Simulated assay, not measured.
Amino acid sequence: MTQRTDTPPTWDERAQLTTFLDYARDTARAKCEGVSAEDARRAPLPGSPLMTLCGLISHLRWVEYYWFQVMFLGEEIEGPLAEATDDDPDPEMRTAVDVPLARLLAEYEEQSERYRRLVAECELDVEARRPIGDGRYVDLRWVILHLIEETSRHNGHLDVVRELVDGRTGA
């Protein structure tokens, strides 16, 4: 069972931000515990054919990649996000149904560990190398806050999808 806490080890800003991001990440993983391979790939919402547990975990993984590596570090976009188009804006969700959930979760955790180290090594005021849509440069603090919001919002989606595919609630 995934262990989670939203109580930071210290009360400084960095500890609070990183604890809440890890709490949101851990909640996403907890919502996937014990689901069958078949149910992890099921899309129970007729209007959202890409919204599967696999798709949502893949999306969370690639959203973090985008904000930390592409926007903050300024690296070139790679992986499924490089294939996004107006007609297929979320290829990471579409292709995820072909990947076992355990692998998606392992990749998400491995990547999360890399980003924990990145955040530990940078000041929160360091600006991203790429601007957001309106031309402004956000700082690392904003990236972390954005990922807390994004992950928490998708945890609600994971919760609904999980209940619809196998009846499990909570976590």
Rank of each mutant, 00 (worst) to 15 (best):
E149Y: 04
I148A: 08
E92R: 08
L145T: 14
Y108E: 01
R117Y: 01
E121W: 00
E107R: 07
D139K: 12
A128L: 08
Y115W: 14
D139M: 11
L105D: 00
E150N: 09
G135M: 12
E150T: 08
V138R: 12
T151E: 06
L124I: 07
R116A: 08
A120E: 15
D134E: 15
G133V: 12
V119W: 07
R129H: 06
E92D: 04
P131C: 14
W142E: 14
E150M: 13
E150R: 10
W142R: 14
A96N: 01
Y137V: 09
L104P: 00
R103F: 01
C122S: 12
E149W: 07
D139Q: 12
L105T: 00
T95S: 13
V143T: 09
E123D: 08
R136T: 13
H146P: 07
Y115M: 14
L104I: 05
E121L: 01
I144A: 10
R94Q: 12
L140T: 04
M93P: 03
E110A: 01
V97K: 11
G133T: 10
R136I: 05
Q111D: 12
A128H: 11
P131T: 09
E109N: 11
L104T: 07
M93Y: 02
R130G: 01
E121M: 11
L140N: 05
E121G: 01
A128C: 15
P100Q: 05
P131L: 09
A120I: 03
V126E: 15
M93D: 05
Y108H: 11
I132G: 14
R114L: 05
S112Y: 03
E121K: 04
E149S: 14
E123K: 04
R136W: 00
R130M: 10
E150P: 07
R117G: 04
G133A: 14
E149K: 06
R114C: 04
L105P: 00
A102N: 02
E127C: 03
I144V: 13
E127T: 06
E113W: 00
G133S: 13
H146N: 10
E149T: 06
L145G: 14
E110D: 04
R141D: 09
E150S: 09
Y115L: 13
L101I: 07
H146R: 07
E123F: 02
L145D: 11
L118D: 00
L124E: 02
L145V: 15
E123H: 02
V138I: 15
R114A: 03
I144C: 03
V126A: 13
E92K: 09
L101P: 05
L104N: 01
V126C: 01
L147R: 01
R94V: 05
V97A: 05
R130V: 00
Y108R: 04
E127M: 08
E110P: 00
R114G: 01
I144W: 06
E123Y: 03
I132N: 08
V138A: 13
R141G: 07
R116K: 02
L105H: 01
E127N: 05
V99D: 06
V99I: 15
